[in-house]
Design a binder for these strands. Sequence first.
DNA 1: GTCTATAGCTCGATAGAC
DNA 2: GTCTATCGAGCTATAGAC
Lengths: 207, 207
Amino acid sequence: MGVAVTKKPKGTASRARILDAAAALFRDKGYAAVSLRAIAAAAGLQSGSVYYHFGSKEEIVTEVLNLGIERVHDQVSTTIATLPVDADAATLIKTGIRNHLKALFAFGAYTSANVRIYGQVPTSARQGNLAVRREYEGLWDDILSRAQARGGVQGGIDLAAFRLLLIGSLNATLEWFDPQRGRVEDLAECYADILLSGVLTHGGGRQ
Amino acid sequence: MGVAVTKKPKGTASRARILDAAAALFRDKGYAAVSLRAIAAAAGLQSGSVYYHFGSKEEIVTEVLNLGIERVHDQVSTTIATLPVDADAATLIKTGIRNHLKALFAFGAYTSANVRIYGQVPTSARQGNLAVRREYEGLWDDILSRAQARGGVQGGIDLAAFRLLLIGSLNATLEWFDPQRGRVEDLAECYADILLSGVLTHGGGRQ
DNA sequence: GTCTATAGCTCGATAGAC
DNA sequence: GTCTATCGAGCTATAGAC
């Protein structure tokens, strides 16, 4: 679970353990309920030692928030890039859904922490996360407008609203889906089917 | 905004103000970050006075959580009950979506607080909210199985998964939709269209 | 029903030894 | 790079006056 490993020489082992511990605790208890002493203990350190690696609790949470989105962004953009240039709308969107969900559960502590605590961290930490958020939204806007340009998405669909519906419903799976009890691929298939084709029988559709 | 008013003689004006203040603060900052002093101040009281009305901070948050769900449950079940007994699948689901969203934003402080802080309140408060949560899930299961029994919902759809997708995507609108800048009815129409019929053009559907 | 005052605790952050 | 020790602040909850 050493999720926070990067190539930057900056990253000592303790630093990564602090981030991993903080992400898991923030996910479980929220931002304010987690003390620096608790983070330090979970990382195997005394509280004073944490300040060698980070300037403040706020600095830790900012990095946790950013890693949570960057992991998902990388996974989705990488897999979309491997698709043939003429991939159809369903393939594009399905690939995005499957890999968003895969990354969500593969880096669960960071991604869950992001979804759960973003609204309650100090303003500066929220602002420090805005850029990567917008970048990820932009990635999805590209995917969806490519799908619509292929002619596979109905012209009347509001793509921004669909993106919000889609990402909102995918992120909400963090609250109930247990990857130990079901395959993420199956979840992705089920969600993609509903989002792409709806739930109505084919006669009773659009009114 | 006196949302917490009930008919119970128990409800003094101060008690309702405490609940309203607590709901708004919990929504904005999370559970642990909100002090009893802050709740008291927002309700126009000193912190000691709060303990005349509630035994603890935990007791306050439990009531906020329950009110958040009960308001939505009441709105949805009442409006579903006014439909003709032979209402079709699209009407049933659309009515549920519209009224869930309406209640979400009409009682915004309580419903947002519930969605945001449920995962981080003390265990006993979470357990005190479980019964009303399950009841609301049951209401939706009834709506969806009625719709499927009418023949309007595809047989292959996993109704439990659809309910989680649907409620997850609706609740996520609390994070971005501003009822001052758009009509909730329009949002409901847009979401219902996508969830009922999907986004693909009619040729490129199910594979 | 609301007030003031405070006990007992935990918090984020710092200082300085090793 | 990690430790111990601690400062000052803020927290929940209680006690007792009015």
